[in-house]
C-alpha cells in the first residue's frame, strides 16, 4: 500500500503489482508517502484480473471503494489504467472546483490556461512548455476554485500519444519519459513525469492571466488572434466538465476568469514558434 498526493487530492493505492508501485514512485517521487497515511480522499486498488486470466493474457483491474468504472486492461498497461482511473475519480467527485478540460501552466506568478479541443495538441504543448521553464500546474484538469478565482495545481504525469512521444523526445533531451505502452485504447502512450518544481509547489495556487485556445495545423505558421470575450465565455463554459453541475457559481466563475484574462485563439504548426509566441504574451498589469 502507498499513499501519495496529487495537488489537493490524496490517493491510497493498494496493489500487488510491483512494477506499478515502482512507476508511481518514479513519477510522483517526493509526493509519495509525503502525507500522513491516515487520511486519503481516493481509495483505489489495481488488482490482478480473474484467476483464469492470470495465466493467459494477464489483466489489471482498477477499482475504487464502491465501483469498477472500466473494463480490465492488459497487465502491462497498469500505470496508464491507474492514471485514467484517477482522472475518473477527480472528474466524478471534485465539484468544489470548476473543472476545465484544460492544461494549465505558470510563469512569473501568472497562469496560462490551454483548453483542450480535439486535435488541439494540448498535451504535447503542455509538455513542451513544462520543458521550457514554465511550471506545470496540470495537464488534464484546470481546477478553478470558484470561491477564489484561483487555479489549483494538480501536477500529474502527462500522457503523450503516438507521434507526440517522438516529438517531445526530440524537443528536449531532458524529457523524462516512462515506458511506452503500445496499443492502448488511445494508441501508444508514454508518460512525461512532472518535474520536482511542479511536484513540490503543488499547493501554490495561481491567478489566471491568459486563456489560449490552441489549434494545431500541420505546416501552418503561428498566429495568435484576440478572442472576443463572449466567444471565450461560450468556449470555456463548454470546455468545463461540470459547468452545469455547479450552476450559478459556474457561470460567475467563467465570467470572472474571462473578464480578468486576456483571451486568444492560436493556430500553430510547430512547437518552437508557438512557444516563443506564448512567451511573449504581455504580462497583466499588476
Amino acid at each position: 500500500m502507498l499513499t501519495y498526493r496529487v495537488g489537493p487530492f490524496s490517493v491510497r493505492l493498494r496493489t500487488p503489482l510491483h512494477d506499478l508501485i515502482q512507476l508511481v514512485r518514479w513519477c510522483y517521487g517526493t509526493n509519495v508517502d509525503a502525507e500522513p497515511r491516515d487520511l486519503a480522499l481516493f481509495n483505489v486498488a489495481v488488482e490482478k484480473g480473474s484467476l483464469s486470466r492470470r495465466l493467459f493474457a494477464p489483466q489489471a483491474v482498477f477499482r475504487t471503494d464502491s465501483e469498477t468504472p472500466f473494463q480490465p486492461f492488459p497487465r502491462d498497461h497498469a500505470f496508464a489504467l491507474l492514471e485514467w482511473g484517477l482522472n475518473w475519480c477527480i472528474a466524478t467527485r471534485a465539484h468544489q472546483y470548476l473543472m476545465l478540460h484544460s492544461a494549465a501552466l505558470e510563469r512569473d506568478g501568472h497562469a496560462l490556461i490551454l483548453p483542450a479541443i480535439p486535435g488541439s495538441g494540448k498535451s504535447t504543448l503542455a509538455a513542451a512548455l513544462a520543458l521550457s521553464g514554465w511550471r506545470l500546474l496540470s495537464d488534464e484538469f484546470g481546477l478553478l476554485d470558484w470561491k477564489t478565482g484561483l487555479l489549483q495545481p494538480v501536477p500529474r504525469a502527462i500522457p503523450l500519444k503516438n507521434d507526440s512521444i517522438e516529438i517531445i523526445r526530440r524537443f528536449s533531451p531532458q524529457a523524462d519519459l516512462g515506458p511506452v505502452f503500445p496499443r492502448t485504447r488511445k494508441g501508444d502512450v508514454a508518460h512525461l513525469r512532472p518535474d520536482k518544481q511542479a511536484l513540490s509547489r503543488d499547493m501554490e495556487t495561481v491567478r489566471p492571466a491568459w486563456i489560449v485556445f490552441p489549434r494545431y495545423r500541420a505546416g501552418s505558421s503561428v498566429r495568435l488572434t484576440p478572442l472576443p470575450r463572449h466567444l471565450a465565455f461560450v468556449r470555456l463554459s463548454q470546455n468545463a466538465f461540470n459547468y452545469r453541475l455547479i450552476g450559478v457559481a459556474g457561470f460567475a466563475a467563467v465570467e470572472h476568469v474571462v473578464d480578468t484574462c486576456s483571451c486568444w485563439s492560436a493556430e500553430y504548426g510547430g512547437l518552437d514558434s508557438i512557444l516563443s509566441a506564448l512567451d511573449r504574451l504581455p504580462s497583466p498589469a499588476p
Binding site: 489537493p8 487520511l39 467527485r93 465539484h95 468544489q96 455547479i246 457559481a249
Partner: peptide, 20 residues
C-alpha cells in the same frame, strides 16, 4: 479536516444539481 470538508462540499454541489 480540510480534505473532508472540501469533499463534502463537492457532494453537496452535486446534490443541489440533482435537485434542480
Amino acid at each position: 479536516p480540510a480534505l473532508v470538508g472540501h469533499d463534502l462540499d463537492a457532494q453537496r454541489c452535486f446534490a443541489r444539481y440533482k435537485q434542480s
